[in-house]
Design a protein around this nucleic acid. Structure first.
Lengths: 248, 248
DNA sequence: CGCTATATTGACCAGAGTCAAGCTTTGTGG
DNA sequence: CCACAAAGCTTGACTCTGGTCAATATAGCG
């Protein structure tokens, strides 16, 4: 039950991601900047908000739109026949969700808001119509999907070849990329997912996540208090993310 | 150094995959069946053959084409900073290779022939030109990439949540899908990759692969002799591929 | 202000990795 | 065509990382 998002709501607009920083920007920009000004805003149908725990879509839902996060975060996971789940990605502002359902026409995965989260919805039919007029739009979409495939491959490497310490260090580093570079120590960062979710995503248990976070803190690499985390030593984290040693 | 493939070579043509069974079919078919007959064969630039161990492309090579396998098999892998590799997929007849390089414009992965392998090459520029005239071509490409993303997600589930037995059973089952359904026992199937490669792909060691293959044979599920394998009990394999038990 | 979900920490254990030895297959050159 | 080398496969013994189970502690929520 997504409720319509009110542009004039009391929520602080400044925290929303700027369109220029959105993964959709090159799509939207092409559309609104095209030769025909009537294309303006043709891509985005609506914006809406979900609260923590609400589903963006569920397994079996039919696919008709892709989504971009304006503010907030989600987790996306697939479900095995026996009920086990694998969180395939966490998404934050500017990231796209739903690309995996284009072929089948329905979702095999589920997406849930981890906190109050605001989305842009791009109906796939809008995208298809527009892209007949703007071939570059097509290319941008291919680029976006190509990037999603690359991310999947990096995830396979992490899950298949890294030990627990490397996994967590790698993930924490990927969070830093979104933050101000180089700044060390960084401003506080909020982990919106639970330890269990983080473990699930990385192929570990929540207990292992706890233990390693504690160790990183003892070693002065991070400083955390529940969900809030400071990164104190980026370069050490980078070393830990891929220890040099013989190939397995 | 790919050598030009000779259509009139003495190799048995019957073993090549039929175009109708190729992952590219819907692309090629659209192109050669379009309203403008001059589009015929505009997609495929050439066909060529690689021998075992020869590279289709290497890390850093610039991207200009995607490839379809006509006959044979390849492995594709990515390389971590520390030199560890993760085989992200094995490809057989009808499958597409190179989709991960579209965004960057160069390959971050490498692809190697596991045996003598014959390819169709589709220059990406051909595809882009044609797709301006045939919007359906674009949609087919999105579908193909969407499927690649799904495969990646299934791989994450396998690597992150399954134990060694389940991993191998799942992989063996995926091989069966390509074979004649239901037939049990199936005709002999050739594993073209080494035990080490198979282990690498599944997040295991070659020793573990050996031990589990031996166990499967003792249990009458498969029968193998070196690289040749017969599937004797599909349903048991299906049970092993996802043991019912509590979610981790 | 209690209740529930989440997080932390410890003790113990098992699955898969490592190391090592021997075997088989494949490929090469004489 | 054979001999030898190299690569790949198999099996066993042992180790160790990270999972499991369990007991608190803490945070967030109504």
């Amino acid at each position: 039950m997504p409720k319509q998002f009110n542009e004039n709501s009391p929520e602080p607009a400044c925290e929303f991601i700027a369109c220029e920083d959105c993964g959709l920007y090159r799509l939207c920009h092409l559309a609104s900047d095209g030769e025909d000004p009537s294309l303006s805003n043709a891509l985005i149908k609506r914006r809406f908000v979900l609260r923590r725990g609400e589903y963006l879509y569920r397994q079996g839902d039919s696919f008709h739109a892709i989504y971009a996060i304006r503010l907030g975060s989600t987790k996306t996971y697939i479900i095995n026949e026996d009920g086990r789940t694998q969180i395939t990605s966490f998404h934050g502002p500017g990231e796209l969700i739903g690309l995996d359902a284009i072929e089948a026409g329905y979702f095999d995965s589920e997406a849930i808001a981890l906190e109050t989260t605001s989305f842009c919805e791009i109906p796939f039919s809008h995208f298809q119509e527009l892209s007949r007029q703007l071939p570059d739009l097509q290319h941008q979409m291919l680029a976006i999907m190509s990037r999603a495939i690359l991310r999947g491959q990096q995830m396979m490497l992490l899950l298949g070849k890294k030990d627990a310490t490397e996994k967590l260090a790698t993930y924490l580093l990927s969070l830093c990329r979104h933050l101000d570079k180089d700044a060390s120590p960084t401003p506080p960062f909020k982990l919106t997912m639970s330890r269990g979710d983080l473990g699930n995503h990385l192929g570990l248990t929540q207990e292992t996540i706890c233990r390693i976070l504690t160790r990183f803190q003892e070693d002065g690499i991070i400083c955390f208090q529940n969900k809030t985390i400071h990164f104190l030593n980026h370069s050490r984290l980078r070393e830990l993310a891929s220890k040099t040693r013989a190939d397995r």
